[in-house]
Design a protein around this nucleic acid. Structure first.
Length: 481
RNA sequence: GGCGGCGUAGCCAAGAGGUUAAGGCGACGGUCUGCAAAACCGUUAUUCAGCGGUUCGAAUCCGCUCGCCGCCUCCA
C-alpha cells in the first residue's frame, strides 16, 4: 500500500519512494533563537516529529535534521535592545528551545546544526554560485540573481512577473532584480561577522538551510518540511540556491503545515497575538496539546481557543480512562495468552474490530499522515473496548483482543505521545505509593462496613493531595493527577 | 491587484463520485452506583455556505454568488 505524501512542489499527493530503500533524509526548518517559541511554532515541531517517528515505526531508517538559526537580524536586534551579546541571546533561547521541546514530548532531531557553526560550508556554497554565474557581488554583499535560475517560482506557483507586480519589497537600487536575495551581508558595526572572500560579513538567512541540509543529508534528500509561510520566499530561495549550485534535485518532497489561528487570524510574533508555548504547557498537559494538533490534518489551519483545548482534554481523559480500565481488567487475568490458536483465528466481534481498525489506523497515517482520521479509529476501538468490559464475563478471545488493543495503543504511542506513562495508572514515588495504597485499602474496608462519612473523608482528603480514587464495579482504583 | 486555500450538527473534526455522512466534546433522558467519578444505552446533520450544472448517482466534479483565511515583506 505504501505511504503517500502531499508534495507542495507538485501540488498533489504522491507515493512516497525514498531515494534509498528504507532510508529517509528528513529536514525541518527549525527556530530562530531570539525569543521563546509560540504555540503556532510548536505545530510543525510536534507534527513532523510524529511523522518522523511514524516512519521509523514503519521500518524506515530516518535521519532527521533540524537547524537552529543563531545569527539573524532578529537576534541582533534583540541583543542590541537588551544590551547583551548576540551569542548570549542565542545561547539563552537555544537552551529554552530544547527545554520547551522536551516539555512538549518532542524528540530531539538526530542533528541540530547551528548556523554559526557552518559558516565555511555556506561560504563554499556561495563561492560555487558566484563561479557558476548565479550570484553577483555589490560591495561586500553577495546576491543571488533570480532571473538566472529558470525555475524560480516553481514551488510557490508564482512567476517572476507576478512577483514583481505584487512586490512589497523595498527596492534596493543596486540589485539587478528586486527579488534577488542576499547570500552574504557585509559586516556592520557591532554585528557578528566572519571572514570571507568578500570581506567580513555574515550569511543571509536562506543559505544556511541549503548548506546544512546538504551537508547532513546529501545534495538530494527526501523530505523538507516547514510552515506554510516558508514556501515563499524561504524554500523557493533554498531550491534556487541549492539546485543552481549542484545542478541536482534538492528536496524531493516538500511538506508544509497550516497555521494556528487565534480569533480567526494567524498566530504570529509580528501580529502580537501569540501564546508562548511554555506558558500553555503550564495550563494544559503536553499530551493535550499534542492531541489538539494531531486531531486535525496538518495541512489545514487549526483554530485555537481555550474551549477547544478543554474539549481535547476531555477526549484524552476518556482514552486514558479506557486504558486504565483495561489495565485493571487484565490485571489478574492471563491476558489471554493461553487462548487456543484456532479461537484467535476465528475471533470475536471485538477482536475482528481491533484487527480491522489497526489496519485502518495505519492506512490513515500512511495517507499523507492523516492523524485525525487515524485517531478516530482509536476512539472507535476504545468505545468497543469499554462496551465489552461493561458486559463483564469476557471470553478468552475478548481478553486477548483487549490485551492486543492495549498493546497497540502503547505501540502507537511511540509516535503519537498522547498517553501519560508506560502504563495507564500514573503513580507517585515509591513510599508515597505504599501509603496511598494502604489508605485506599482501609477505605475499602470502611465502605464494606458502610462507614460512608469516613470513607468520603479519605477520598476528599486524598483528592486535595492530588490522588484520585474512583470506586468502580470491580473495586477502587486510584491514580495521581 | 496576482496566486492559493477553506466553509460538514451547539462546538471540534474525518470523509474527496455509489452501503444508514467516522470519531470526539457538550447537552438531554436512562442504566449501574451509598454518594462522587468512570463506563454503558438512547436522543442530538433526510443533509454537507447558497444557487445552478455534469452524472443513473454529488458533501465529494464544474460554474457563479456569499463569507472567512493565507501568501506575494520577517514569519512555523
Amino acid at each position: 500500500m505504501g505511504i503517500k505524501i502531499y508534495n507542495t512542489f507538485t501540488s498533489q499527493k504522491e507515493d512516497f519512494i525514498p531515494l534509498e530503500p528504507d532510508r529517509v533524509g528528513f529536514y525541518l526548518c527549525g527556530p530562530t533563537v531570539y525569543d521563546y517559541f509560540h504555540l503556532g511554532n510548536a505545530r510543525p515541531f510536534i507534527v513532523f516529529d510524529v511523522y518522523r517517528r511514524f516512519l521509523i515505526y514503519r521500518g524506515f531508517q530516518v535521519k532527521y535534521v533540524m537547524n537552529v538559526t543563531d545569527v539573524d537580524d532578529k537576534i541582533i536586534n534583540r541583543a542590541q535592545k537588551e544590551g547583551v551579546s548576540v551569542a548570549e541571546i542565542a545561547a539563552r533561547y537555544t537552551q529554552a528551545f530544547f527545554e520547551d521541546m522536551e516539555k512538549l514530548g518532542i524528540h530531539r532531531a538526530d542533528v541540530h546544526p547551528k548556523a554559526t557553526e557552518h559558516i565555511p560550508e555556506m561560504i563554499e556554497l556561495i563561492q560555487k554560485l558566484l563561479e557558476k554565474g548565479y550570484a553577483y557581488k555589490i560591495g561586500g554583499d553577495v546576491y543571488f540573481q533570480v532571473e538566472k535560475f529558470r525555475k524560480y517560482g516553481r514551488l510557490s506557483g508564482k512567476n517572476l512577473e507576478e512577483l514583481k507586480a505584487g512586490a512589497r519589497v523595498e527596492v534596493d537600487e543596486r540589485k539587478r532584480n528586486p527579488l534577488d536575495f542576499a547570500l552574504w551581508k557585509a559586516a556592520k558595526a557591532g554585528e557578528p561577522c566572519w571572514e570571507s572572500p568578500w570581506g567580513k560579513g555574515r550569511p543571509g538567512w536562506h543559505i544556511e538551510c541549503s548548506a546544512m541540509s546538504m551537508k547532513y543529508l546529501g545534495e538530494t534528500f527526501d523530505i523538507h518540511a516547514g510552515g506554510e509561510d516558508l514556501i515563499f520566499p524561504h524554500h523557493e530561495n533554498e531550491i534556487a540556491q541549492s539546485c543552481a549550485a549542484t545542478s541536482k534535485k534538492f528536496a524531493r518532497y516538500w511538506m508544509h503545515n497550516g497555521f494556528l489561528n487565534i480569533q480567526g487570524e494567524k498566530m504570529s510574533k509580528s501580529l502580537g497575538n501569540f501564546l508562548i508555548a511554555r506558558e500553555v504547557v503550564k495550563r494544559h498537559r503536553p499530551e493535550v496539546i499534542r492531541l489538539f494538533f494531531l486531531q486535525k490534518h496538518y495541512r489545514s489551519p487549526i483554530n485555537y481557543t481555550e474551549e477547544i483545548l478543554r474539549q481535547t482534554a476531555n477526549a484524552l481523559d476518556r482514552l486514558q480512562n479506557t486504558l486504565q480500565n483495561i489495565e485493571y481488567y487484565l490485571k489478574d487475568s492471563p491476558q489471554g495468552t493461553d487462548v487456543a490458536h484456532d479461537q484467535i483465528q476465528q475471533g470475536s466481534e471485538f477482536s475482528r474490530l481491533v484487527q480491522y481498525s489497526k489496519r485502518e489506523f495505519i492506512k490513515a497515517m500512511e495517507d499523507d499522515f492523516n492523524s485525525a482520521a487515524a485517531i478516530g479509529k482509536i476512539f472507535e476501538m476504545a468505545k468497543e473496548a469499554n462496551r465489552i468490559m461493561e458486559k463483564g464475563e469476557l471470553s478468552k478471545v475478548d481478553q486477548f483482543a483487549l490485551a492486543d488493543f492495549r498493546r497497540m495503543l502503547l505501540e502507537y504511542d511511540q509516535f503519537l505521545g498522547i498517553l501519560p506513562g508506560k502504563d495507564g495508572l500514573k503513580k507517585g514515588e515509591g513510599d508515597e505509593d505504599a501509603l496511598v495504597a494502604l489508605l485506599v485499602q482501609v477505605r475499602e474496608e470502611l465502605r464494606k462496613k458502610k462507614e460512608w462519612s469516613l470513607a468520603d473523608r479519605i477520598r476528599n482528603k486524598l483528592k486535595e493531595l492530588g490522588y484520585i480514587i474512583e470506586d468502580r464495579r470491580e473495586g477502587s482504583v486510584w491514580y495521581k493527577v
